[in-house]
């Protein structure tokens, strides 16, 4: 369990490796299988997730602690976070489109996709559940998103290699991808107990 008393380093490692959001928690799997066909797209998705997740957790933390808690409306957090994250991604898209067309072209289609990515919402919730302070919640979301990128990039690399291999016909495509993902997940279980986490 992560708590606010833990050091920044431990929170970061726990978020990125020990409790990897894709391979240990199994959150955000739709994009994990959807956009991991090619290395390029998975890197694009990973970068967009890092960007959106950090900003979304900053804003959702502020909204929760400075709007919901004072009014005793903690039970509204699901609806509020969905609203917050959706508007936030819209805003980000506009700002990026105006200020940096190259970045917009690179992230382009991934930004709207991320609006409905459960990993983003999960991190916003986990920040609250773990009672993390503002600064530590940023570190935590950075760790989670880097873990997401790490997992999806590795997965894309393996899938690109599998494309070239003589896979039995009944295993072609998603079945072999699922098997690969489960083996990767087993490998990540090896991090359990690292630094006593």
């Amino acid at each position: 369990m992560i708590s606010n008393n833990m050091s920044i380093f431990l929170i970061f490692i726990s978020a990125m490796m020990v409790n990897n959001i894709l391979l240990i928690r199994f959150i955000g799997l739709c994009s994990f299988f959807g956009v991991s066909n090619r290395m390029e797209t998975s890197i694009g998705m990973g970068m967009a997730v890092i960007f959106v997740m950090v900003i979304a957790s900053i804003v959702s933390w502020l909204v929760y602690h400075h709007i919901l808690v004072p009014f005793h409306l903690e039970f509204l957090r699901t609806a509020t976070f969905i609203l917050t994250i959706a508007s936030l991604v819209q805003l980000e898209e506009m700002v990026i489109r105006k200020n940096s067309p190259n970045l917009y072209r690179a992230m382009g289609i991934y930004l709207p996709l991320i609006t409905t990515n459960c990993a983003i919402l999960a991190v916003a919730f986990l920040n609250i559940d773990y009672n993390l302070s503002f600064f530590k919640s940023i570190i935590y979301s950075l760790g989670v998103s880097l873990g997401y990128t790490l997992a999806i990039v590795m997965f894309a690399g393996i899938r690109e290699r599998i494309e070239l291999s003589p896979v039995p016909k009944s295993f072609k495509g998603y079945p072999i991808a699922f098997i690969t993902a489960s083996l990767m997940s087993l490998a990540f279980l090896g991090f359990k107990g690292l630094f006593g986490l």
Partner: peptide, 17 residues
Amino acid sequence: QAILVLGGLGLGFGILL
């Protein structure tokens, strides 16, 4: 309160956007 806060947030974000 709930309606006010959620509605206010929605309105706020709408205006901002």
